[in-house]
Design a protein around this nucleic acid. Structure first.
Lengths: 344, 344
DNA sequence: GCAGACGAGGTAATCGATGTCACAGCGGTG
DNA sequence: CACCGCTGTGACATCGATTACCTCGTCTGC
């Protein structure tokens, strides 16, 4: 009674101690019941459970994490939360986390290595149970002794044995460019992310693979490396079209580049160009012409990564693996335009 | 020395105790230095600061939160992380949080009231310092005694005196519909979110205001209330067009409805319809015709909400206020089509 | 009949930091 | 000279839960 008053005076939740007192046991026994330890007499267990219900007790996650050294939280580190690709990935991860009563802390690197360190450090300090990381760094030495499972997404860590969920960047890029080649294009430009990220490098290799396969000499003037966050992709497209021997088709190596390039092409009325985008985006199938894509479903990546992480958190120890998310080409129009098509 | 070995054997970070020992003081004094308490002799302070640097000490956020009853974390609750509107809002909030060394926990309600309770409860248990909420519930009684500052976004809490950053839903909708009226449309359809959310109700009111102002009788057959997460918006559009007296223009009351409706209109080759979207989206200006919008910049909302929250966290106590994010119409083509335009 | 296993439960230390309170020294004051 | 108040400091309790270790019966096997 007094106790209940004390609680209400404090305006606070019930603590384990309150439960124990209400059930007439020690906190240890109450803790056993709550954590499903079976060395508790059925009758005692029942009393504790009743007290939990009566008091609406729920363990304090902070105190629990402090003691256990582990939090019921996973961290997700991406380039930028607002990026549609990552927004979808995160959405899917969160969906899976919800089912497991795990919270998700999001942090973005803004594509800067030093920030990557900082945010990871912060997440470790919070004792996250696991991490899903789209790393932009090439050096993961500082993660080697990670105290929690890691799953890399979008880009595998080449210097670290850790799970990763990626797409076959090289193969996908090759697929995209071969598609354009099949439709008769011979001068195909590449617009992609800075080559400081491994993803970009692989996609550029795939682009070259395809050209090699068709016996076409690579022309560096057709390769544009841009910062996709800015409006650079559109500018790059404009420059490509001003070349003495301009391309008849463009392969855009990621979604943000596509979002940057297409408004420019439309403004210049150059929708006669062949175009394939690595990565889908809203309205891609509603533009005129609709945009042919190589699709690496962000939801699938999020799901696979989360599944892997939760499986490790549950104690499974499958061998470290790089999982390739399925990849396919979706022909919608822009990739099937012949090179000699008249300009609109 | 022994201590340093012990630390490295533990493979762990330095604790306050390690700092205190290294500086030859008590933990309390070390704590004083770290928290900027000025009742410490300059020389002692210097020793502690040196120890902090030597050991690379950083306080454990968990332990600190437990003791202080307050975490350096803010919670953000939205419908759905993957929603482009909220993704941008979150991106902006996070950007501001970074500057203040505050972490952000994201939770989504999936538009279900019971989940809203659950996630908020979870965030409170984590002792978040503040909350930014896009609430879907109409009943906020359980938030009345919130232990931390709240800022509502997108939808104000009508039953609670709390800060909110919203757009003038009614005025914006009216603006959009008046735009279509000015271009000669008389039968204008409304496609919007379920009326269970206040936002949707206000936008529908604005739509009616505009029609009233033009002396046009409202026709309920032209009003479609859909679940924007599904493909319902497209279906609704199709049904509207099959009416005996179909609309010549559509006002889409939110981004997701636009993303659902437009592919359908394009598929049906009904791009002759007038169209205004409440909310911008990628490629809106690249479609043919480009989409006229009423823009409620998600970044602005995120920034204003975060500014407000951080100002309260810093101890400011401005009067509770509902802030209206700026709203403007961006004419791009689809809203300026005359009703008698031939179909493509 | 007794050693040891086992079941049920409790006590106290611990996680890492901070709040409370007491205390030693010192200069000033009546 | 005794007392006051201030400064700088530390011992110890505390936040809420978990873990290491111990106790006390009772049951089993020899």
């Amino acid at each position: 009674m007094t106790d209940r008053l004390a609680r209400s005076a404090r305006q606070q939740r019930a603590r384990l101690r309150d439960v124990a007192e209400a059930a007439g046991t020690s906190t240890k026994t109450a803790s056993r019941v709550i954590n499903g330890d079976d060395r508790v007499a059925a009758e005692t267990r029942a009393r504790v459970e009743q007290a939990v219900l009566d008091l609406g007790y729920r363990p304090d996650p902070l105190a629990r994490s402090l003691r256990r050294g582990l939090d019921e939280t996973i961290g997700v580190v991406v380039d930028e939360v607002g990026d549609p690709f990552f927004a979808s990935v995160i959405g899917e991860i969160e969906r899976m986390a919800i089912d497991r009563d795990v919270s998700v802390i999001i942090a973005s690197t803004r594509r800067r290595e030093e920030r990557e360190r900082i945010v990871l450090d912060g997440l470790y300090q919070r004792r996250v149970a696991g991490l899903i990381i789209a790393s932009i760094s090439d050096n993961h030495a500082y993660l080697r002794h990670s105290s929690c499972p890691l799953v890399f997404i979008d880009r595998a860590a080449e210097d670290l044995a850790a799970d990763a969920v990626v797409v076959d960047d090289r193969g996908g890029a090759r697929m995209a460019v071969e598609h354009l080649l099949r439709h008769g294009h011979r001068r195909i430009a590449y617009i992609g992310d800075r080559l400081s990220t491994a993803t970009a490098r692989h996609r550029l290799l795939g682009y070259r693979d395809a050209l090699d396969g068709a016996g076409i000499a690579a022309d560096d003037a057709l390769v544009a490396e841009v910062e996709p966050a800015d409006g650079d992709a559109g500018v790059a497209a404009e420059e490509l079209l001003r070349l003495p021997a301009p391309p008849t088709a463009i392969f855009s190596a990621n979604t943000r580049c596509s979002l940057g390039t297409l408004p420019t092409l439309h403004r210049l009325r150059r929708t006669d160009l062949g175009f394939v985008s690595f990565g889908d985006f809203a309205m891609a199938d509603t533009l005129t012409p609709a945009i042919t894509i190589v699709d690496h479903s962000p939801e699938a990546i999020g799901r696979l990564a989360a599944e892997r992480l939760f499986s490790r958190l549950a104690g499974d120890e499958p061998p470290v693996e790089t999982i390739f998310a399925p990849l396919r080409i979706v022909a919608r129009g822009s990739g099937e335009l012949a090179p000699d098509r008249p300009r609109p």
